[in-house]
Design a protein around this nucleic acid. Structure first.
Length: 122
DNA sequence: TTCCTGACTCCAG
DNA sequence: CCTGGAGCCAGGA
């Protein structure tokens, strides 16, 4: 059956969901972090936070490279660290930027949090 | 084609 | 604070 092929074809208007995620992620200032949900909400699909994480999966394949280490879950936990080259790479990258990590969680997360809807508000 | 999984989040208890 | 269930979209078997 043809299913909903026409939808997929028309879905490409200006930029795909992934590319939007990459752009936002690249805007994250050094020493700051944000969450999957924040990005998803900024793009208008709050419930699609999982897709943001999925997009991060191919973050290493796009150009320029996306700082996926600056994207954590809503609790500031480095849930995606296991997907990096090494489980500690994500933490090391963040600490190098001035962010402290304790027990796989961003210290003072609320203060380091960078909200795209707020900072990128047009 | 269907079924399962996943770098999430919200809601209820 | 923790646990379980539902919603979300995409990709692999």
């Amino acid at each position: 059956m043809a299913k909903k092929i026409q939808e997929s074809s028309v879905k490409q208007d200006s930029s795909s969901f992934f590319e939007d995620v990459f752009e936002v992620a690249r805007q994250i200032p050094k020493g700051r972090v944000t969450s999957y949900g924040a990005i998803a909400a900024f793009l208008g699909t709050r419930k699609s936070a999982r897709m943001v994480g999925w997009a991060m999966n191919m973050a290493h394949s796009v150009h320029p490279k996306v700082p996926a280490q600056r994207v954590v879950n809503r609790n500031g936990i480095l849930t995606g660290k296991h997907h990096f080259a090494t489980p500690v790479l994500m933490q090391q990258l963040l600490e190098k930027e001035g962010i402290k990590i304790e027990n796989d969680t961003v210290v003072d997360f609320e203060n380091k949090f960078w909200d795209p809807a707020k900072e990128l508000a047009l």
